[in-house]
């Protein structure tokens, strides 16, 4: 499997990264080089292997339903790029 420039553009859009036309050539080559590393996995027989999502065989721990968090909105708003009165602001989103 190897990627063409169009696919690279689509992936970039999905990942919200912009790739300029001058970069696309190089990016495509690099990504295909990396993907060629992955090809050898195809050699391995894994039909009856359980996929491993976690290194440890543990169950999810559940927390009690208790409100434990104080209102830190002022501190959080302080580090935001743009805020209004208590809101985070972004350019108008048209639905």
């Amino acid at each position: 499997m190897s990627l063409n420039k169009e696919q690279v553009k689509e992936i970039a859009q999905l990942a919200k990264l912009s790739i300029s036309d001058s970069e696309i050539e190089q990016s495509t080559i690099e990504l295909n080089n990396i993907l060629s590393l992955m090809a050898e996995l195809g050699e391995i027989e894994t039909d009856h292997v359980e996929p491993m999502s976690h290194p440890l065989d543990m169950s999810q721990r559940l927390r009690e339903d208790v409100v434990s968090e104080a209102d830190l909105s002022e501190e959080f708003q302080e580090i935001a790029p743009k805020t209004g009165k208590r809101h985070f602001l972004v350019p108008t989103v048209i639905e």
Partner: peptide
């Protein structure tokens, strides 16, 4: 929630 009618030129985010 995104609120679109609160600020001119901006959408406001309430989390």
């Amino acid at each position: 929630k995104s609120i679109h009618d609160l600020y001119e030129d901006y959408s406001a985010i309430d989390l």
